[in-house]
Design a protein around this nucleic acid. Structure first.
Lengths: 223, 223
DNA sequence: TGAAAGATGTAAGGAGGCTTACACTTGAGA
DNA sequence: TCTCAAGTGTAAGCCTCCTTACATCTTTCA
């Protein structure tokens, strides 16, 4: 059965506490869209006038350097909001959003979203909190990048991913995500070759198991 | 004459558009405090339950590594808000806030601040915007750190500082800020020695003039 | 199913920038 | 105004990690 917009809204922590009537209003200003894998929701430079919610699939937010290297800013799960910086004075997108699986998204016009915030003060605090969370995360990544080497950043990435996508299994915490070494390099600001090297070291040391493209953390090196 | 809290509020862009009555409410929940140079407003690990506004002086937000290195997250001017992550689920401070000049600050309890937001939807959007701005800035620093070398980061820092603290003069854009090479290193994630080296290169090339601890940008290498 | 594209393994070489070390200069505060 | 701490200049050595270069293994999809 196709889940309704209202279902997504009512199960989303961001909208928690809103009266049902307002949830319906939110549902009514959302426009559902399908995005196929490898397609972009938006690209850096696009006009920044919509906010999105990911309903199904997975979306990657990233920034590109002039010479084509990529920095992955965020991996999004169903329920996550993105493009929210359009309400923070962003005129043009600074990041790009790409579906890395076939996805369903909901789009809301910036203006309508702001009107909605204006009418629902509690909701606005939720949005503020949400952006604040992202700010804290990014700040801590900045810190890691400056203070820690590739090995340590890789370990932290794995424990972060385990916290978000981990599943307890026989061998340890299994990360339900398929990432290539290049994907990982883009997440920690390193090169594909160095990531391959460091991952294989972790395997040899026994703190990481890899089968296919699935990673399992077997030790609490990852705290 | 001592400027009143209300004066600071009414001239602050964050509070713009608020009815005067609400500005007075805000003033009434603020507690003014004096912080001497080199003292901390808060330290990483402190309970995160207040929001601050800088009235006078200058405050530096920073993060420390285990081995004592420092990353400067932000330099604040009068009118700037800080500690705002306490409304974004931050239980303990992740950064420290240190006065780098004798300063006057205003403190507001988190709970009172949130109540105020709840009653003033327009204001809440302003706060969201504010945090969003900081998020964009930090993201772009993350990007620079990954994609650019020290020389380029140094140039970008100078043009950022010029935009915020610059003053047109005979020779070019003069930055009204006294920074040591160590301060600069902490801002761009480099070492003191490397910063000295690169600054002297820029001086030789003629794009930067230094007298004492004052920097003047003489060319548009800095865009 | 087979070819092409994508992903991984590995190694040599090199560069950027950090560390260490120390001399010299400036400035803050007694 | 003198002293001492703080800041700056400079250089050698080294270390991490990137780049380049291929071989091989896997996945995709025509």
């Amino acid at each position: 059965m196709q889940k309704t917009k209202l279902w997504y809204i009512s199960t989303n922590s961001l909208f928690m506490g809103l009266p049902e009537k307002e949830m319906k209003v939110m549902a009514s200003i959302m426009r559902t869209d399908e995005i196929k894998k490898k397609n972009r929701v938006y690209t850096a430079g696009d006009k920044s006038d919509k906010i999105y919610m990911l309903k199904e699939g997975m979306v990657k937010l990233s920034r590109l350097s002039d010479d084509g290297r990529e920095l992955t800013v965020e991996l999004l799960e169903p329920g996550d909001i993105f493009g929210e910086l359009s309400i923070a004075g962003e005129e043009e997108r600074e990041t790009s959003a790409e579906a890395i699986e076939d996805s369903m998204i909901c789009a809301i016009n910036r203006q309508e979203f702001e009107d909605f915030i204006g009418k629902n003060p509690g909701f606005s605090l939720a949005i503020t909190r949400f952006i604040g969370f992202r700010l804290r995360r990014i700040e801590s990544r900045l810190e890691n990048l400056i203070f820690r080497d590739v090995r340590s950043r890789l370990q932290m990435l794995f424990s972060d991913l385990a916290a978000k996508y981990g599943q307890q299994s026989q061998e340890g915490l299994r990360i339900k995500l398929k990432l290539t070494h290049q994907d990982i390099a883009n997440l920690i600001g390193s090169s594909r070759e160095t990531v391959t090297l460091e991952i294989n070291k972790l395997k040899k040391e026994g703190s990481l198991q890899v089968d296919g493209r699935n990673y399992t953390l077997t030790e609490k090196v990852f705290s």
